[in-house]
Design a protein around this nucleic acid. Structure first.
Lengths: 364, 364
DNA sequence: TTGTTCATTGCAAAGGTTTTTCTAAGGCTC
DNA sequence: GAGCCTTAGAAAAACCTTTGCAATGAACAA
């Protein structure tokens, strides 16, 4: 290790820069820069000075200043991620966690870091400009609220964007999603195959795209099979934590109650399970339950939840990968905007053939 | 909105810079800089030009270039986060999720962003220098492996560091942790109070600090109460996913089997629950189970898990907060290194008084 | 000897912002 | 009317890296 005479303080005082190295190696900063990066320049360096530089650099453990480099290169090797905030929680559900995990993995293999913007952005497109600081080379937006015009706002600023779980409003923005209709179909076909004919849908909030799409697919399927529409077929559950949800209660205990329930997602399915247990309704004996997402908890419930698996990790990973590709190739060669991944039925323990006659209701 | 003559392309060509604004406002870039930030400079600007600048800036929706600003200010308003990677998953357990969520929240209130470094760092201190690019103002290290010398490596480089869940090896590094001994005590006292005398410990891997500390606390408590040490008191379970874990099987079905089990964390406790169910051991009837962490799934198991709550979100939030304080105050005024938060007993459904006589074993 | 080629390396500019220093001008006091 | 203070704003330096270009010098061919 090469040491200067009065440089003991070096390590904790100033960071070492290119010119520090240059000074000690008796050369200029550009030579050092060229040697320490793969030289894209037409500046060439003799072997003698190259060795000298490498030796000095090794002794000083130099790390390039990412700010200066980013400023010069107009490239930061960093991907931004935008979440929908829920209160003070950015990563408030297991869905986001799985996607983020995938994004991180995808970015990691491409040598990119991840920046979590901590600003809340659902407000207006006015806030979009905040993300076009030059901190990131592109942004992954996870499940954007469609009411919001953030995505057009971002692309309008010339920002590279990739989406996870969203319809694509703007051209040229890769969007990772699954086939919701197919997922619903898988779930309902499964229930049909094991004998269910009275199947209810439980969901919430029509404001977003996927709830609408899944509910539409459900109704379509019901029509296809020639089943009657139930008056209570769709519950917009604001399911209170283990509380008194009257519509849900009615649904599960009514005279013409369904033998199976398809829930918009696993969170809701879990609540249905809890509700059923507290009401003495046995799952899957009296009621079959299918969820959607196959989030981490789905395999931990009792009974384990049958659900439609979204490859969330993979979606995040691919979103990162596509975004990087878009950043690094300046042009949109073989660019496909919409990547629809296949959902998958995961049969666990919460579904079974219905009892032939509705069992007598347990007295609560 | 002020528009120049040939600037329609502005929005999607180049980003607007200070000098763009200066040019249009007929002034210099420094004046613009001074107006658009809280002026710390002694450059002063008349009201007339100030208005002119503000007007032009509003029209061009200017966003400062974070790279340039960071380079100049030597401050990025960004906090780095370092996780222990497990395979390709950075945020592989609910523990990390809760902490990260807290870090993000804490950073957000302080106006900081979060950078997730995607490099794996457990290898050596040599990789520590990679985190002293000037990208972040400080780094939160979550549950560092103590074998690794990364933390000393980081601080040695003059980097500001905060730790979550770690012993503090170096001076001047804030460390957010809980009182493990107290947590163990809470759990065991609870079991004692409801009548348990044969209590086993299930954990794994002594390589990290907290397993050691909790196990030590367990043994100490056993001694204090004058209870005999069990030969099988500590199972180092490499619990295979719903598989054949022989030691665990022996423990749960042996002649002198414990009436209660204290698990190192919730993940293990959940596996014990699964194991018990598949063996026909009823919880809490035949066996009480206590976990540790109170991670999200703890309230979703059947029966719901009694556990020791770690305020993980709060730990993350405080780590971010302390780190920011340390960054913004140059000096270590009233600096306290170690912040020990209080664990809390959360009694749910997995604990109950033991049956007076051991119930006959169910035939598997 | 003179002109040409080639390798080596330093100069300088650029990237956008912040801050210190400095100038110019106007207004005030005596 | 001269000196001085205040104000407004510009020039320039700095932060650190990257890269086009020029300069230097040596070897080499004519």
């Amino acid at each position: 290790m090469w040491r200067g005479s009065h440089n003991q303080v070096m390590s904790l005082g100033k960071r070492t820069t290119l010119s520090d190295i240059a000074e000690r190696a008796q050369t200029s900063t550009m030579a050092v820069s060229v040697v320490l990066n793969g030289a894209r320049s037409n500046t060439r360096v003799s072997d003698a000075t190259r060795q000298r530089i490498l030796q000095v650099a090794a002794g000083l453990n130099y790390t390039p200043n990412a700010m200066a480099r980013g400023l010069k290169r107009q490239r930061t090797n960093t991907l931004g991620v935008l979440f929908n905030w829920a209160g003070s929680h950015a990563i408030h559900n297991l869905y986001s966690v799985a996607v983020l995990d995938g994004i991180v993995a995808g970015a990691a293999t491409a040598g990119y870091h991840i920046l979590l913007y901590t600003q809340k952005w659902h407000t207006a497109a006015a806030s979009a400009s905040a993300f076009s600081d030059q901190r990131t080379d592109g942004v992954v937006v996870v499940a954007p609220n469609e009411q919001s015009d953030v995505v057009p706002g971002l692309t309008g600023l010339g920002l590279k964007v990739a989406l996870v779980s969203s319809v694509t409003p703007t051209e040229g923005v890769p969007c990772l999603t699954i086939d919701n209709r197919e997922g619903v179909r898988l779930a309902l076909d499964h229930l049909w195959d094991i004998g269910h004919r009275r199947i209810a849908y439980i969901g919430h909030g029509w404001s977003r795209h996927s709830p609408r799409e899944r509910y539409d697919a459900y109704r379509e399927w019901i029509d296809e099979r020639g089943l009657p529409h139930r008056s209570d077929e769709a519950i917009l559950a604001d399911l209170t934590p283990d509380g008194e949800d009257a519509p849900l209660h009615d649904l599960l205990t009514g005279e013409d109650r369904p033998t199976a329930v398809f829930a918009f997602n696993d969170d809701i399915a879990v609540k249905v399970l809890e509700h059923a247990r507290s009401r003495g309704v046995s799952v899957p004996g009296d009621l079959s339950v299918v969820g959607f997402d196959d989030v981490l908890v789905a395999s931990l419930t009792v009974p384990k939840l049958t659900t439609i698996r979204q490859p969330l990790f993979e979606m995040g990973r691919q979103a990162a990968k596509r975004l990087v590709a878009r950043i690094e190739k300046s042009d949109t060669d073989d660019f496909i905007a919409r990547h629809v991944l296949a959902p998958e039925l995961v049969v666990r323990e919460s579904t079974a053939p219905p009892r032939h006659e509705p069992s007598p209701l347990p007295t609560p």
